[in-house]
């Protein structure tokens, strides 16, 4: 399907919210999140946090990589300022994600504060699925729909964090490895599926190569540089390519 899908007529906001929740629960990411958060819940138990704290961290932080850092560094007794720095560096990626998503949700009448909740719900799973499914959602319904898919995913993650907390210690090694492999495997295929434009495919390929090279070379802020170098190079290359195509030979 290369042509944009026709938007359906607008629905009441509650209906849109519920269909967002259904989109979350029927998405393959519901499984992925469940698996990943069982792993993080188990980790929180090992490091001696309470189950209420673990669920609160899912509600407030809502970013699996940051939560892994938070639990393992706090649990190991790292200095608070060090923990805060590590978290904020891992969260820089949320800025371009929010900036790419919000313009799809706005109408002329949208108030700034209505965008705060969808921004809080923005995480890799929600972002990937929203960019894929939003073209089918009427523009007037998109904020409610995004709040629905975000709440749906977050509900799954909270239940899984609590379940993992009580399962902790009983996970055999191959199963624990499988839970940790869910995130990279699902993101690999779903981001590629979402990349319809040349610039996005190039950015993914470049990021995949540049990221490990920078990490291997122990460059500081490796992920931020990966984004800036890979993304800018992909953008420049696709601009050059389309400028060439437009100019008659």
């Amino acid at each position: 399907m290369s042509t944009p899908l026709q938007s359906n007529p607008p629905q009441p906001a509650t209906r849109a919210f519920l269909s967002g929740i259904m989109a979350a629960w029927t998405s393959v990411f519901a499984l992925v999140l469940a698996g990943s958060y069982v792993g993080i819940g188990a980790l929180a138990h090992e490091f001696g946090f309470s189950v209420g704290w673990m669920v609160a961290s899912t509600l407030l932080v809502w970013a699996a990589p940051a939560q892994v850092i938070l639990v393992s560094t706090l649990g190991a007794g790292a200095a608070l300022i060090e923990v805060a720095l590590a978290i904020t560096l891992s969260a820089v990626r949320l800025l371009p994600m929010v900036m790419a998503l919000l313009p799809l949700l706005r109408t002329e009448r949208t108030r700034q504060r209505e965008l705060i909740l969808p921004a809080h719900f923005t995480a890799i799973s929600m972002w990937v699925e929203s960019l894929r499914l939003l073209p089918q959602v009427p523009r007037e319904n998109r904020i409610a729909w995004c709040n629905g898919i975000g709440a749906g995913f977050m509900g799954v993650a909270c239940a899984a964090s609590a379940a993992g907390y009580y399962l902790a210690g009983g996970l055999p090694l191959p199963l624990a490895a499988m839970l940790l492999f869910l995130t990279p495997m699902s993101f690999l295929v779903s981001v590629v599926r979402n990349s319809r434009l040349v610039v996005d495919r190039l950015a993914f390929g470049l990021g995949f190569v540049v990221g490990p090279l920078l990490t291997w070379g122990k460059v500081d802020l490796a992920l931020m540089w990966t984004g800036l170098i890979g993304g800018s190079a992909a953008y420049a290359a696709s601009r050059l390519y389309s400028a060439r195509k437009r100019r008659p030979p």
Partner: peptide
């Protein structure tokens, strides 16, 4: 450009 940066960061996360 912003979306390309976000996509490259995601690819970096996956590769790491």
């Amino acid at each position: 450009w912003v979306r390309a940066v976000a996509t490259a960061v995601l690819a970096g996360v996956v590769a790491q």
